[in-house]
């Protein structure tokens, strides 16, 4: 009988030790955040915030971040916005942990808090993606082929192919590596063919983009 009691006590002690061990795995900082917010925040990356911000540029970033801390899930937050049309503003205690200053909007979309000067700049640049994206040539590492082509292009007019021909029938290779290579090559050819055609067009009509009134 006493043995049974011993076992029971041992189990209870084990449970308490386990509780204590798991609760103390939280750093004091995390505990501080949790008590301030009133819930245990989920992990929120800048990416997640950006995703929601681009979809709903009018939504204040703090509201988005606060909701993401609760949900930890872009989809749930997005659905909430769609269903309710708004997100709750974070309580004052939230700004003690996430001061407004450190999330200065990097996008023109959230220009409500920025000055009018950046506002104007943002609205004009927003239309044409201010930072230059890497071109397809860079992306598919076709620089060498482009430069070799620019040299030979005048002599080899006969073998000109259009990008549309590249998209037509092809051979289904039996092993994955060959298939990957074949697809890659077709994509490269499509880009090169499109580039060549565009170049020829601009040779005929010097700068079609510059003529606004034709």
């Amino acid at each position: 009988m006493s043995e049974f009691v011993n076992v029971a006590v041992a189990v209870v002690v084990a449970v308490f030790i386990f509780r204590w061990a798991t609760s103390s795995s939280e750093t004091p900082e995390q505990r501080n955040i949790r008590t301030t917010l009133g819930f245990k925040p989920k992990n929120v990356t800048q990416d997640m915030i950006d995703t929601v911000t681009t979809m709903f540029p009018d939504m204040p970033v703090d509201n988005i971040r606060y909701d993401l801390l609760r949900t930890g899930n872009v989809e749930v937050t997005t659905n909430k916005i769609i269903e309710r049309g708004y997100l709750d503003a974070p309580p004052a205690s939230y700004f003690r942990i996430y001061p407004r200053a450190d999330l200065q909007p990097q996008q023109g979309a959230t220009a409500t808090t920025t000055s009018t000067q950046t506002n104007a700049a943002a609205s004009s640049s927003k239309l044409q993606n201010r930072k230059k994206d890497p071109s397809l040539i860079e992306r598919f590492h076709l620089e060498s082929r482009v430069s070799s082509e620019d040299v030979t292009t005048s002599e080899s007019e006969s073998k000109v192919i259009t990008p549309e021909e590249v998209g037509k029938k092809s051979v289904w290779e039996s092993n994955p590596e060959a298939r990957e290579a074949s697809l890659k090559e077709r994509k490269a050819q499509m880009i090169l063919a499109a580039r060549r055609r565009l170049q020829e067009q601009s040779k005929k009509a010097p700068s079609p983009t510059a003529t606004g009134s034709d």
Binding site: L127, Q128, L136, P208, T209, A210, G212
Partner: peptide
Amino acid sequence: KEEYERIVRAKVREQLEVDLGEDE
């Protein structure tokens, strides 16, 4: 619409690294 088409065309050329028109 003219400006829209101009932006789109400029983008197309930028992506294929074909020289842009003078004003671009």
